[in-house]
Amino acid sequence: MKISASMKAAAIGGIALLALTSCASNEGGSGSGENGENGSSLTGTLNATGASSQDAAQQAWIASFQDTHSGVTINYQATGSGVGRDNFQGGGQAYIGSDRAFDDEEIAAGGFGSCVTDDIVEIPVYISPVAIIFNIEGVESLNLKPSVVADIFNGEITKWNDAAIAEDNDGVELPDLDISPVHRSDTSGTSEVFGTYLNAVAPDEWPHEPSDTWPVAEGESAQGTSGVVQTVTNGNGTIGYADASQAGTLGTVAVQVGEEFVSYSAEAAAQLVEASPLAEGRGAGDLVFEVDPAAAPAGSYPIALVSYLIACEQYEDANIAELVKEYFTFVASAEGQEVSAGAAGSAPLSETLRTQINGAIELIGSGAAE
């Protein structure tokens, strides 16, 4: 099942953030045009917004890239995927990160203000499990069936000692405590990934069409991945969903796949993605996976975030095209994937997928205006 089209964010608010630096790691790029000891002659600045799930990986990629390209500054603002996509369509973004690709309707409509043409490059370079996180004193892990997860987030199961939870958690002391679900308040690709999972594996309990806007009002809401994690951490009896790299010491859920319960891991998430086909009818540089959680093979983790870097094939500024191409090449490289695996626990790309991605990256700058 392909992730469905979603509502666009109401306002392009993230553009105003571009004047800010994203974090201390960005200060290493001088932007002065002077070559460092590494001999790189590249100079300039890239401004980008997008997925908060990618933030830890982006900052690690940026710091490593700027170590060897001292004349380059990259500013990445974790605004959320929806704002990132709106900003890319509105113009002014060198590239964006997004937890979903542009859908077929958006591609057909075109109008990507950051680009000379409507031809874009979308490459899946950050693959990570989405963890279901919770905060119950004394409980580190739980087994939950898909229907139970759906009923919790729908507000149908409201107590942690409910029989439906206890059934699969023998020996766990479950408290007579209210459940407080936490969801994203902003448009979020992570919400869409999690909603796609629920709709695919528990359609009766979760009939909501997948969307990057959370469909139910039950529980608490929080801005960004960090906001969800903070709200779950500060609560008692809270449960939420977040990129697994930010789960920290919170309790996590093993979800049912077939007859077994599978805990999240980068390797288990990679198994799901590797079993998924690429969407048909896309441009040569538009590599979009069709992930179906209901078809997850045994041993795989069925809630996998396939997060994209998105850029133009052609830019008005040939220097921007060269910088984006060089940065994307580093991110997709074995070294770049090791960097994000270490910083964020993501699943490194297979060599087969890397070959496809490098072919897409080669299209960046083809025909760029001089």
Rank of each mutant, 00 (worst) to 15 (best):
E267N: 14
G248L: 05
E274F: 06
T252R: 07
D292G: 15
V255W: 00
H208A: 14
T187M: 05
G189P: 12
T233Q: 13
V232D: 00
E192P: 07
L250R: 05
S300A: 15
L272W: 05
T213G: 04
D186R: 04
G285D: 10
S276F: 13
S245A: 15
E267I: 07
T190W: 02
V216A: 00
A202G: 09
T187V: 06
A279C: 15
A202K: 08
E280S: 14
L278R: 13
E209K: 14
F194R: 00
V273Q: 08
A275I: 07
W206D: 03
S211M: 02
Q223L: 09
A242Y: 02
T231S: 09
P293A: 10
G281D: 14
A295M: 09
V232A: 01
A254S: 15
V262D: 02
G281P: 12
S245C: 10
P203M: 08
E205Y: 03
G283I: 08
A222C: 08
G240S: 07
S300D: 10
P215N: 07
G235M: 03
S263L: 11
A247E: 04
E259K: 12
V291N: 03
R184G: 00
G224A: 05
V216S: 02
D186V: 09
E259P: 06
A244H: 05
Q256W: 01
F261Y: 05
E267R: 12
V291M: 09
